[in-house]
Design a protein around this nucleic acid. Structure first.
Lengths: 221, 221
DNA sequence: CTTGTATTCAAGCGAATACTTGATTACAAT
DNA sequence: ATTGTAATCAAGTATTCGCTTGAATACAAG
């Protein structure tokens, strides 16, 4: 076996992973699975594709060893294979953020359209939490919260926020977060909170980012 | 603009990056560029492809903003765009190492075939360097050494190693490294060194790995 | 200007990909 | 057993991709 054979084998297999990352739908699926395991149907609904098509994409991801599946009852639950996959997804996102001007542009346009202020940086959030100044609000779905959340965060899904505003203490500011930098739930939440008289801001980082950066992540209710 | 449009835009552009990572040749090119900038011709020779084909691959990489090029004299020098690209490449490699059994397998077979021992782990290398016990040997090409190397390492390209063995102190062991875990130069070097009576071992990490892990990397002669 | 070299462009062809549609499997619930 | 649901499979089609070949640029050197 010569060096060329080694390289061909290694890069050939790695390219299978690259191919799996080469579709917008699959990337969106990966980001969703980075939040919490899901069934095929759930994923299909969220990414706006047919079930058959979503299933095909999932097989590609599974072939590249990026996701794993197990059947519980009549549903097949898909999940990210392990932390190295999450890191890869985060690295890809950071690269896109840093280098693809179009992405930065469309996100800024989106934020501006909703009257959102700049997100507060991660270090700032940690400082405020250390001084016990803020309520940290997780506005994702309850399953996503359960699968992993910022330690000390309070789970209030966006859809329930207006009805549960009185749960939040009015003498401290609120920082909302959701799935990550391209998730708009936190922006909407901040808008609602401000309208209700709260001092509110959002952070862009999601649970995957915290995990990748080495911060602890709480699991369960 | 709605949330769907945002996602379509973002994931669409990110998928361009994924597509760029979907070819064995392009991945090999990226790994080479992670060592040092190169011309199209150099790359074509190293990856064993025609110049025209290599040029096409480089355009794809450039379209995904993974590499940049500038013309100096009659050569076009390509280089990685920035650190986020290097991190992405490292994350992809780690994922492959951790999850693709075939890769691990072929590498082990290769090492066994050359009678190589287990690589020494990064922490061990750092400890030995701190105790000033080893000569660290960079067996890559001189340009690659100049573009970035382990601090304190000595540059002896593999092709010159036999002729320059007397440069190495005989009272200490030698640790060789090259481009990364799938580069065989260090394995060959260790074999030569042992044959010449040295106590020698190799590390798998390359400069890109050290950089990604936050260690300092020396530049220049 | 002419020659030579490095790189890119353009056309063409076989292979692989993405999505749709309709059938099929697997199995829980009744 | 029958029904209903979740997921996968299979076939078909339009599109894209990867590589080759030969021509075209760009430009440094003589």
């Amino acid at each position: 076996m010569d060096s060329r054979t080694l390289k061909d084998t290694v890069y050939g297999h790695l390219a299978r992973v690259g191919k799996a990352l080469a579709s917008p739908v699959r990337l969106e699926v990966l980001d969703l699975l980075a939040q919490a395991p899901r069934t095929v149907e759930d994923l299909a609904r969220e990414v706006d594709a047919t079930v058959a098509n979503t299933s095909q994409h999932l097989q590609v991801l599974r072939g590249a060893r990026l996701v794993e599946a197990d059947k519980r009852g009549q549903h097949v639950h898909y999940r990210l294979a392990d932390a190295s996959v999450s890191h890869l997804a985060v690295a890809l996102r950071h690269m896109g953020d840093a280098r693809l001007a179009e992405i930065d542009q469309v996100r800024r346009a989106f934020q501006a359209e909703r009257g959102a202020l700049e997100p507060i940086p991660r270090a700032e959030l940690l400082a405020r939490v250390a001084r016990d100044e803020v309520t940290v609000l997780d506005v994702r779905a309850p399953e996503e919260f359960r699968a992993g959340h910022f330690p000390g965060a309070r789970s209030v899904p966006l859809s329930e926020l207006t009805a549960r505003l009185d749960e939040l203490p009015r003498d401290r500011s609120v920082v909302a977060y959701c799935r990550g930098p391209w998730c708009v739930l936190a922006l909407d939440a901040v808008q609602m909170l401000r309208a209700a008289g709260f001092v509110a801001a959002h952070v862009e980082e999601g649970v995957a980012d915290w995990r990748a950066a080495g911060f602890p992540v709480a699991v369960g209710a």
